[in-house]
Design a protein around this nucleic acid. Sequence first.
DNA 1: CGACAGATTGACGAAAGTCAATTACGGTGG
DNA 2: CCACCGTAATTGACTTTCGTCAATCTGTCG
Lengths: 234, 234
Amino acid sequence: MDHCSTCVVRNRAICAALGTDEVSLLGKMGRHHKLVAGQTLIWEGEDSLLVANVIDGILKLSTSMSDGREQIVGVVYPSDFIGRPFGSQTQYNVTALTDAHVCTFSSSDFDRFAREHPDLEHKLLERTLAELDRTRRWLLLLGRMTASEKIANFLIDMSERLIRPDCSFNGPANAFDLPFGRQQIADILGLTIETVSRRLNDFKAQGLIAVPSRRRIEILDRDGLETVAENASQ
Amino acid sequence: MDHCSTCVVRNRAICAALGTDEVSLLGKMGRHHKLVAGQTLIWEGEDSLLVANVIDGILKLSTSMSDGREQIVGVVYPSDFIGRPFGSQTQYNVTALTDAHVCTFSSSDFDRFAREHPDLEHKLLERTLAELDRTRRWLLLLGRMTASEKIANFLIDMSERLIRPDCSFNGPANAFDLPFGRQQIADILGLTIETVSRRLNDFKAQGLIAVPSRRRIEILDRDGLETVAENASQ
DNA sequence: CGACAGATTGACGAAAGTCAATTACGGTGG
DNA sequence: CCACCGTAATTGACTTTCGTCAATCTGTCG
């Protein structure tokens, strides 16, 4: 009955702030959910009714305009936290990119529990601060970088963040599968799929990367890619 | 000696989470600082040595690329909190846009104090979550909006956020002074000063706004401006 | 093997950037 | 109070980048 004791993210999710007794208290409030790829867990603008831990899978946070233009504003991985505690509305959609498992809590239950457990709130604060830093760096990418710079930075970022069956050290990977299609890459970088496709081919032609299949990326010249990421003109 | 008891932001800054005794403890750790317009308080990439409350004035948070391109990633007003607690590095510059007063704390002192005062951390968490929401909405603006849409949204945002000698209710202002020059507006919106200038003139020509002096904006047709903000094509 | 979504490629257009010249504001000092 | 100066902002001509639309290709899966 107590899923937490066997939970694969027990020591990496915010639950790591809690002792055995407390985590089982929290666990009793939580519900396991399976999501299929493409399924939306939380809708933009709806009342903030639930928060969740990601157990397995990858999800996107996105906002869109009335005419359909979309911007992905965050990507979450196993052990990451989802939702807006202490707030009335969630400002973005949360959608599974792959099949996923999440552990959901009612917002009000979670908020109450968190207020009674400062260590949990502290963990949440550290995560939120880190996410804010990351998001602010993304502003520079969206506001000031060219398409080539955006894509180079994106690839480097992915090579450092994917491959996280955590634990054992593994530096930046030079070959990996993206969990995104071209449209999603475009929605992350503020570009169109055509531009993403063209610039990727440029990189291929320059020998910086190889793209053996749709979602697979192999970085052949990391230094070169990093040069493009800093300053496309060099 | 105890500045806190007379502090104008005592009840709006994160200090509002603390009782009289605790705030005076915190106050003993704080240092008053005057900044002149243009002065940088924290440099991007340097060790995170201090955090601060803004007492008076407006400051920008910004990052830049090696060739000088700059993106403003945040703007802070009186009662707002500055800096990166619980972290090793600050990821952006903090620079005064106007003459300003801040109340600074050594990061390590503040971190220790915060961990001992859950209510303070909670306040900080709520602020950080709100700032993250705001920053994520900014991603949509930078990634997916046209210049006209960006500027219309910016003006509406400003009309709602300025005019905060707080307290007394005052809805969105239809006339206000921007605390930014054209270059700074460009650095917020990911544009050039020329484009900002041209689109502002378009709005003037359409009778949406008036620009009686360099930094003054008068919104003449808020509905029209909101229409442009949502969808420039309408 | 074939169908279909996803990705690529090409031709074209539009939006924003660049560079350069001009104008206007706002502060200073006479 | 007015003239002057320097910075900031505007304006114009031109270029570049990226987006749009349409056609084609490809790999994934039934």
